[in-house]
Design a protein around this nucleic acid. Sequence first.
DNA 1: CCTCCGAACTAATACGCATTAGTTCGCCGT
DNA 2: ACGGCGAACTAATGCGTATTAGTTCGGAGG
Lengths: 355, 355
Amino acid sequence: MAEKQSAKSRRGRPRQAEVARLAGVSQTTVSLVLGGNKQGVALHPDTCARVLAAARELGYVPDPAARRLAAARNNLLGVFSFTATFPTAVEHSYYPFLVGVEQEAARHGYDLVLFTGSSSGGAQAASPGALERVRLADGCLFLGRHIPAGELRRLVEHGYPAVHIGRRDELDNLAWVGADYVEASAEVVRHLAALGHRRMILVREDDDAPASTDRERGFREALADAGLADAAAVVRAADPAAEITADWLRGRCAEGVTAFVAEETDTGAAWRALLAAVEGAGLHAPSDVSLALLGSPPADLADRPRPTGFDIPRTELGAAAVRALTALLTTGETESPLVSCAFRPGSTAGAAPTR
Amino acid sequence: MAEKQSAKSRRGRPRQAEVARLAGVSQTTVSLVLGGNKQGVALHPDTCARVLAAARELGYVPDPAARRLAAARNNLLGVFSFTATFPTAVEHSYYPFLVGVEQEAARHGYDLVLFTGSSSGGAQAASPGALERVRLADGCLFLGRHIPAGELRRLVEHGYPAVHIGRRDELDNLAWVGADYVEASAEVVRHLAALGHRRMILVREDDDAPASTDRERGFREALADAGLADAAAVVRAADPAAEITADWLRGRCAEGVTAFVAEETDTGAAWRALLAAVEGAGLHAPSDVSLALLGSPPADLADRPRPTGFDIPRTELGAAAVRALTALLTTGETESPLVSCAFRPGSTAGAAPTR
DNA sequence: CCTCCGAACTAATACGCATTAGTTCGCCGT
DNA sequence: ACGGCGAACTAATGCGTATTAGTTCGGAGG
């Protein structure tokens, strides 16, 4: 009765050889039938039917590792994030991206492998080779800005299909998908200009992430296009809460500024500071001043009036990333598309007060 | 100049054989050295050093597919939910489970494969055999109550390691992890009893899911233990909004009922109805009547005062499910643990009014 | 001097699948 | 009656690694 390893070690997971035995054919035939017989070997329809029936009866599913090793593909797409994909704190979760990734992957017939990169509690998160695990999948999506560039570069240079969610120009040849912050920000500015605002200020944090500089560029360009170039003012605030005060706001208003624009950040600090300053100054938006947010408000401010601004299409970005990856896999073409953000009218911007 | 496949097909990614050649040893030795030599083969320190040096020089990284193939396990855990796609809302109850699953899986060195009912290449979600695809993973977690029992049984009977999140006794041999609703509900009742409440009513929906019957059992048992057995009353409401009205509430209060307990459901209908009835009756909790909720409030009522009751430890449940699954995989032992819920004092229950 | 032993390695094989180069068999043509 | 040919399959091999069963060699023991 002592069964062979075939039943024990693999827990009854059937392989092609077992399907073959049941169908009375060779393992080769099973592989051909189930693989779609792309090599054009002549196969009798009856045989195919028997193989298919046997595979179904045994519940056969190909082993992804073996497939991969045999230089074929898995139909698996990887998702790797250097922080937990499902963080305990929901504020900056990758979940919306994942929704789009999942939908688009399903549409293309791929399953998703979530590489539990450096989730708290995992093994050495930064251990060299941590990224190599993704090679089990046909290709991989990366998200988060803390992905070790060295390892990623290695993968890409070895021809591994990878797509980063979020612009990432430092690495040549790395495909990415990003949101078009430039255009989206410009649109917000045009909206404000159309409402009659002639002087406006952008409050941004003091770093040089692409997401920030792109917003500033859109802001400046739109103002220039509207003939208001000299009216542009950008404030870089390392500590918005301390710098964007009610007094500061009153000062700017006195100078003729009628609209204030904040960039979205992880914490929403700039936007919070603006809201607090307006309230502290005893003003009201949009009647006294107009406010706009270049992005989405933090979750805890959801009950506030919706800020005028734009929404980052996270779900669509996830889907676009999958499309870029499948393009890489099938045609080998590297594409790095910009996805448009959706303008959000909101209720914090109104007509500029007539002086 | 025609290079051998060694340089072309793999684009220079070195394998053990190349490391071996450089170090002047065999591939076996390389595998032993790099694998930590757990089998205790005698190896000369100098040899190890040479191998290590060669590996470093070539930038050798093991191929995960080959590694997993040779190990006859691929360190993949499946997560299957029968919803068509991922729920879009982050607040969805599904999310906290994933948090725990991801953390615990990472801790055990597993990666996750995400399956959804419709991932089969966009084919019919409910097509027979939809569940078979999970065999790609070493084992699988199931969540959602709409998982087809027949297919699941098939998997389990074939010895496939599966763990269901949520109690599921209908299937013999199916491991599950569940929340201890009986004890948690009993604790809430004890809390109310300690506050002086002598008559209380449980409002539940009209179905027989384990989650509902367990809560009722805890409710009844705690009352019996407190010597208030005859004071127990359970209302099954098919349409809580229509049945739990202000008039109804006044009627019960007139009969001496001082506390109302609702069970948590998907929609939170029972709890909503109770809140509305209390308000409609011009009463206030906890001063006039005490309220308790056997579970967590729906997300949109988060700003309301926190209901007295308990929280389902979803994250911990996800982690427990992973532990149960790894136990199944390594020792083959089926365990189905109950996880304790955390009592939530809240602010909707107070001392019973002295009559 | 031959044997035996342990140290230090290596040859061979399995893992599950895909692919290439056959092999077998029935039948047609001359 | 025999070569040939296509239809229908299968044997053999490779992918890169882990593991098991050897093999070689120098020296100690009898």
